[in-house]
Nucleic acid binder design. Sequence first.
DNA 1: AGACGTCGGTCGATATCGTCCAGCATGGCG
DNA 2: CGCCATGCTGGACGATATCGACCGACGTCT
Lengths: 145, 145
Amino acid sequence: MLDDIDRRLLAVLVEDARLSLKELAARVGLSSPSVSERLRRLEERGVVRAYTVDIAPQALGYQLQAIVRIRPMPGKLHVVQQLIEETEAFCECDKVTGDDCFIARLFVRSIEELDRILDRIADKAETSTAIVKSQPIRRRPPPLA
Amino acid sequence: MLDDIDRRLLAVLVEDARLSLKELAARVGLSSPSVSERLRRLEERGVVRAYTVDIAPQALGYQLQAIVRIRPMPGKLHVVQQLIEETEAFCECDKVTGDDCFIARLFVRSIEELDRILDRIADKAETSTAIVKSQPIRRRPPPLA
DNA sequence: AGACGTCGGTCGATATCGTCCAGCATGGCG
DNA sequence: CGCCATGCTGGACGATATCGACCGACGTCT
């Protein structure tokens, strides 16, 4: 599905998605029109979902990050999910197997804000909160191999 | 720290980090040299950590995603952390407060692979694994406001 | 085997873009 | 009030992207 050049291209883009086609071409050993065409096809096939920017949350004032396990009370699953989705501070949320129905990541400016947000779910779900102390691995793509 | 134009610029880049300076300039209502200068300073100040590409894991053959809570046995914390870091299938890992020392995200091609990876930690830590069924929120930046 | 279509590539020309520079407007401050 | 620092714009020039034409490898059909 992906050949070796595609993988190298992706690996380069993971590091810097704003490199020029010319530069990308030089890195993978093709001409720039070829790279342009490959990118187009990777996007078209849905391999590349987006080019995006990685912003330091601290720069936006988010000093705290928490991971919250959420177990909605009987019948409250959809309400809870909706509530999570529309709370912008939730920046990642997975619906998972097991007792905890959702596992979500929360960016907040203070403990007070964390408390305020969790309070809004408190009557609809049980939550377990873990504050992030450090990030041994900060978001990386799975091996391209 | 960030003015309104910076925030709009970031918001646009979150959607498409490969837009040309000219296009970015048009979106925020400035000239391209101004945008260029703003980006340079955002990068310099560490607000922008990187421009990157969002790759569909399925396209790379990763059919399964799991979230694993990891509680190293006494004295094994560092060994376990090292093991996690060098296992490329772990694509995100947070060190958190609470009983679970680490919470990590794992991309695998099959249940067998999941089992194999967790087996390698089994004698050094207790793990609880939750398979991701869906992603109500798939990685977004916290509100720029 | 040979003709042919397709796919993915290069090359060169042209259009578009990025960068540099000079000059100007604005706001803070002595 | 005058000065300086900051941040913006516009234009010129070099760099880059894009488009069209062409090429070669490969698989298929006759």
